[in-house]
Simulated assay, not measured.
Amino acid sequence: MSTALLLIPSLILDAALGEPKWLWSRLPHPAVLMGRLVQRLDDRLNDGEGRRRNGVIAVGVLVLSGLILGWILSWFGGLVSLLIAAILIAHRSLITHVQEVAAGLRLTLPEGRAAVARIVSRDTEQMTGPQVARSAIESGAENFSDGVIAPAFWFLIGGLPGLLVYKLINTADSMIGYRTETYEEFGWAAARLDDLLNLVPARLSAALIAIVSGCGRDWREIATDARKHRSPNAGWPEAAMARALGVALAGPRSYEGELRSFAWVNEAGSKSADAHAIDRCTEVLWKSWALALLLTVALALLF
């Protein structure tokens, strides 16, 4: 059975059920288990001299683990594969988290800040309403690529082994892929491999967003804005979403009390985003998901 045919019910199951609390309150989520593996490698290898070499070894362990586990699980048939894919694709939970920010903003600014603090790593205590809204939109666009399109893409390309390798490396990047004294060397390999694995999915995500929002004609401008972003990949879906909504994204923000001057994406757009803009963002994300599903159906019919 083709991976495209298996991906169709996986996308639908995730969109319909998300991450049921009754299940994951009783069992550890696979993403949690992946995080524990990364943490164990961090504890054992991120010390002393040769940290970059040790980081490469850690990435090798993660890749090999994903390939072997994915290969073994594939023996259990298509049903197991599509269920695991549904668990590791996170569109419904992404939409839920982003919508919670809009709901919080509609109540009070502090509740909006509290909601957005659960999905971004920047300082949120002093955020204005527009800053909260922009942060939620940026998170929605970036995680549509990382959490939906990229895992679906690598499942299509490599089945369960491809999906598990991607999720392990993406988890590692989120935990150790930082340019800090602790992780500058050890997290280098994870960050670079994550950049490589997201190269195509990020641009595909941007294309989906641009097509469903009718701003495909602005692709050249989207590409220009994407290259201004500090990330080689996150700028693509963010730039497309910024054009889709007519807002400016990215720009200066604070991390651990330090204001950092990042470039604006779609600088000419409105900087006064609000809860309604977040709602429009989730509408675009659902339409983009639907287009991705249609393309998957087309692939299944063709192959």
Rank of each mutant, 00 (worst) to 15 (best):
W286M: 08
D279S: 14
L259I: 15
R253T: 09
V297P: 03
L245K: 06
E267H: 09
P252H: 13
E256C: 13
E256V: 09
C281F: 02
E267V: 13
E283P: 00
V247K: 02
D274L: 08
R243K: 15
A275W: 00
D279R: 06
A298K: 08
C281L: 07
A242P: 01
Y255C: 02
G246T: 02
Y255P: 08
K287I: 02
W286S: 03
S254G: 02
K287Q: 14
A250F: 03
L285A: 12
L259W: 11
R280S: 12
N266Y: 13
G269Y: 01
P252A: 06
A242M: 10
W289F: 15
S270V: 05
A275S: 14
C281T: 15
I278A: 04
A242T: 05
G269M: 11
R243I: 00
A300Q: 04
E258F: 08
C281Y: 01
Y255F: 15
R280D: 15
M241P: 02
G251W: 07
A300S: 15
A268R: 15
P252T: 10
G257I: 10
A240L: 11
S288V: 04
E283K: 12
W264L: 15
G257E: 10
D279H: 10
L294T: 14
L295R: 04
A292S: 10
V247M: 04
A273F: 06
F262I: 06
I278V: 13
A240K: 05
H276A: 14
F262K: 11
L249Y: 06
A292M: 14
K271M: 14
E267C: 08
A290G: 12
L293H: 03
G257N: 11
A263P: 06
K271W: 07
L259E: 12
A300I: 07
N266I: 04
I278W: 00
R280Y: 07
S254W: 05
A244V: 00
H276I: 11
A277Q: 12
R253A: 14
R253Y: 09
